[in-house]
Every structure is written in structure tokens, then in C-alpha cells.
Simulated assay, not measured.
Amino acid sequence: MSAVASHTAPSAALRFARGINVGLAIFLVLYGTIAVMQPSYFEVEGFLNFLRRAAPLIILACGQLFVIAGGGFDLSMGSLVTLTVLGGSMLAGGNPENTWWTIGVLYLIGLGVGLVNGLVVTLLKVPSIIATLGMLLSLNGAALMWSGGAPRGYLPENFRALGRLVYRDVPVTGIMPLSVLILIGSVGIAAWLLHATVFGRQVLAVGDNPRAAELSGVPVGATRVLVFVISALSAVTAGILLGGFAGVSTAVGQGLELQAIAACVIGGAQLLGGRASVTGAVAGALSLFALFTLLNLMGLPQPLRETVQGLILIAAVASSAWRMRRA
């Protein structure tokens, strides 16, 4: 018995490591190419600035990972990002005194969106891809009606500081963007929830076999609702950071939900649930953002970037399906 166990454990660990290293290897190759073209990326400050810009996508990928691990998809993330940015500018109205209660309201909106998604999937038995597609359309419509179809108002400086503030004269690193600190906290919470709590094991169990999980006492309905809440709250966090980077735009969240899904799959997450790694999702998001950065440095047009993004998503899904067949 012990011989079999000792043989099985390294095998599982090796498969886990391979799932992470694929995304990490891709990122290292792409980032090395970027650094050759722009040597400043070899410096610590250059890498931290890269992380600062990649932070929203990484946070989105971590939130999407919980839904994928539980056997679903959340297509409403990008539209919720857009609603966060537009709604933040409308609520705050450029007044710094309105920033904190505005952020509180935005998180309440995110909580509501997550609860609706989860309850529709759980109680009405609507497939998650359909439920969240409907939410995507609803949120886009709400954002456009609220803003009148064009950006209105502007975000106060203390709101935008969450995305673009950079602390100077920091020991060792020289600088430390506030968004990187938010990123570290968000990834740490996600890793703790998925890999070190009973809830994380329940999510993976529901994604692997919901019927077996239910028979073993796992609260399947509550678990599914919670993963959509986590996804929605991560979208609000990403929207707050993106508002700090680029200001108010009606297209700020366009396509981000597909990028988050692709990042998770590149990082080794299994579509339809049962296997996921926060480290892998982070590596996948870094790889995807490094590719976009490289395409920008090469001066390639936006349509080509979207084409490449689509091809990456197809390849990532095909790779996940191939891994499932082998398993």
C-alpha cells in the first residue's frame, strides 16, 4: 500500500507542476523577447511597471478561475468592468469626497450581479454560459443607458490613485505601484481560498462531479453561488484599477472575459471543472498580457491583436480538451 501511495503522489505532483510550467514557460519566452526589444524591462522597475499594467487581467483570471473550477463560465466580467468604470465616474462626479462610498456602492453592485448569476444557474438550472451571456447584455445596456451612450464625468484623483499611484524611493525595488500591492493581496486571498480552505476543496469537488459532491454533503448550490460572487467582486476590483489607468471609456471592459478564460486554460485549468491552480492562472494571464505587449511593441494593428487573441483562445480550449481526453 505504501509503495503504491509513494508512486502515485509524485506522479500527481508532476502533473500539477507541468500544468503550471506551460504558462510560466510561455511567459518567460515572451517577456525575454520584450526585454530584448526594450532593455528597461530587464530592470526591477520595468518589471513592476509591467505587473502594474497586467494587474487587472491577473485579478480577473483569478476570479474566473473559481467559476471554471466549479464547472461553469462567467461571460459577464467584461461588462461589469465597464459598468464599474462608467458608474464610478457618474457616482463620484469628480469629487474626491465621494470616492470611498462610491467604491462601496460599486462592490455592492458586483455582489448583486454575482448573486443573480449564481442563483439563476443554481435555482433555475440555466447553463452558466447562457445566464452570464444574458447578464453581459443586461450590464452593457445598463451602462450605456446610465451614461447616455458616452463617457460622462470623471474619476477623482484619489480614485485613480488606486490604479496609477507609484510609491518612490522604496528599498530594494526602488518603486512600488499601489496596484501591485492590491494584486498581491488579491492573488494571496484567491490562493488561500482555493488551495487552503474547505471551500476550495468543495469548489473542485462540485466541478469534478456535482452529484457525487452533493451525496458527500457538499452544499452544491451555495458553492456555485459563491464562485460567481467571487468572480463579480474580482471584476469590480479590476474595473477600479483600469479606471485609474486609463480614465473613463465605454469600451474599457470589452473582451476581458474571454482573456480571463484563456488565461485560466493556458495556466492548466480544466474546462468543466475539477482541476485549477491560482499559480497557473497568474502565469497564463502574464503570458497573455506579455503577448499583447509584444504585439504593441511590434506596431501591429488592433485587428491583428484581436485575431491572435481568438486563435489563442481556440488553442487553449483545444489543449484543455486534449488533456481531458488523455486523463
Rank of each mutant, 00 (worst) to 15 (best):
R164W: 09
L133Q: 07
I182L: 04
I58M: 02
S249H: 10
A269P: 02
S216D: 05
I230M: 12
L137W: 11
V170M: 13
L162A: 04
L136V: 05
Q64F: 08
Q302I: 15
G188K: 09
V206Q: 07
R325I: 06
L60Y: 09
T82S: 09
V67I: 08
F159W: 10
L139W: 11
N158M: 04
T122N: 13
F199C: 01
P56C: 00
G153C: 05
G274K: 06
G174T: 14
A281E: 10
G255S: 10
I266D: 00
G207F: 04
F228D: 06
I189V: 15
L60K: 06
L288Q: 07
V203F: 05
M298I: 05
S147W: 11
G217T: 12
G104I: 13
T84F: 09
R52A: 02
L258N: 02
V166D: 02
F289I: 12
L91H: 06
L14F: 14
R52N: 12
G188W: 15
S231W: 03
Q309T: 13
A316V: 04
G255V: 10
V81A: 02
R168W: 08
V225E: 14
A191N: 12
I175N: 04
M135S: 14
R15Q: 11
T197K: 01
R323A: 00
A12R: 15
I34W: 02
L115T: 11
L286C: 05
I58S: 00
V29W: 01
S234L: 12
S2C: 10
S6W: 14
L136S: 00
V44Q: 08
A13L: 15
V105K: 11
L256M: 15
L233V: 01
S6L: 14
K125Q: 15
G267F: 01
G114R: 08
G207L: 05
V187E: 08
E306F: 09
G110S: 03
T197H: 01
L297C: 00
G19L: 10
L30Y: 09
L14A: 14
E257A: 00
Y41M: 03
A281I: 02
S89C: 01
V170Q: 10
F289N: 08
A35H: 06
A251Y: 11
L311S: 10
K125T: 07
A222C: 12
L137T: 15
R168H: 11
A35M: 06
Q270Y: 05
L300N: 03
L286V: 08
A142Y: 10
G243T: 09
Q309K: 14
P96W: 00
V198Q: 09
P127L: 11
I184E: 03
A13Q: 13
A54D: 06
S147L: 10
L258K: 00
L304K: 02
T293K: 09
R18N: 05
L288G: 00
V36S: 00
Q254F: 08
L65F: 12
M176Q: 07
I175R: 12
G112S: 13
V170G: 05
V126S: 08
P39M: 02
G163R: 03
G207Y: 07
T102E: 03
L106R: 10
I20R: 09
P39T: 02
L233F: 07
T82G: 08
A55C: 02
I314W: 03
G88S: 04
G284M: 01
L271F: 07
G94S: 05
V198K: 14
F292R: 10
